[in-house]
Computed example of a mutant assay.
Amino acid sequence: MPRMITEGIVLKDKVILDGIKQEAETLLHAGPERWDEATIKLKRYFLTDVLDDFIGTSNRSEAIFIAGTLAELAAEFVLRTNNRWIGSSKWIHRSLVEFDVDYAGAFTEAFDLFYTTNDKSKVIHIVEGILEPHGGRLFAGFSLGKGS
């Protein structure tokens, strides 16, 4: 919403709109609320789970849908752990480009390679690279609903 407000064109000028646009710009530049360690751990777990499903399936139809989920979760993880806004649909790509144009290209290329040739290697590499600075894949010792 803040992006839509800052990029929108005012059709009927009212004094109040300048303040709203300024507030939206401030929100955009500040970035989203930072994820705490518990959230990062939870997101690592789910990203690891989907990555393992992707690696483990030999069913092309399943892999296509798993890859879609993996792309969304991986983009969310890399953007949010770098204090960046996320989006959905076309805004995922736009948010990745805004974060790092070269990284967005490599991310897109990895998934395009999978979709066109069934080669999973670059997707796996991208996702493992996203997880690595935060401790890598997470399964061992992880549980929900129990005290640590």
Rank of each mutant, 00 (worst) to 15 (best):
R3H: 11
R3N: 12
G8Y: 03
I9N: 13
K12S: 12
K12L: 09
K12Y: 13
K14Q: 11
V15K: 13
V15W: 01
V15H: 05
L17A: 06
I20V: 14
K21D: 01
K21L: 00
E23F: 12
A24Y: 08
A24T: 05
L28A: 07
A30D: 12
A30C: 13
G31A: 14
P32R: 02
P32D: 08
P32T: 06
E33I: 10
R34D: 15
D36F: 00
E37S: 14
E37L: 09
A38L: 05
F46Y: 15
D49L: 14
D49E: 13
D49F: 15
D49K: 15
D52R: 15
F54Q: 04
I55V: 15
T57H: 03
S58A: 12
S58D: 12
R60Q: 06
E62W: 05
A63M: 02
I64E: 11
I66D: 01
T69L: 08
T69V: 03
L70V: 08
A71M: 14
A71T: 03
E72M: 01
E72Y: 07
E72T: 04
E72D: 13
E72K: 07
E72W: 00
A74P: 01
A74K: 01
F77W: 05
V78W: 02
L79P: 01
R80I: 08
T81L: 00
N83K: 06
R84Y: 02
W85H: 11
I86R: 02
S88Y: 11
S89M: 12
S89Q: 13
S89G: 14
K90Y: 10
K90P: 06
S95T: 02
S95D: 03
L96D: 08
E98W: 00
F99E: 02
F99M: 06
D100K: 08
D100A: 06
V101W: 08
V101N: 05
D102F: 04
Y103W: 12
F107P: 12
F107H: 10
F107R: 11
E109R: 10
E109P: 00
E109G: 14
A110C: 07
A110W: 04
F111M: 09
D112F: 07
L113N: 13
F114S: 08
Y115A: 12
Y115Q: 04
T116V: 07
T117C: 05
N118R: 10
D119M: 01
S121K: 07
K122L: 12
K122W: 03
V123M: 03
I124S: 06
I124N: 03
H125D: 15
V127T: 09
G129C: 00
I130T: 07
L131M: 08
L131K: 10
E132V: 06
P133D: 02
H134G: 00
R137Q: 15
R137T: 14
R137A: 13
L138C: 11
A140V: 10
G141E: 14
S143W: 02
G145M: 04
S148G: 11
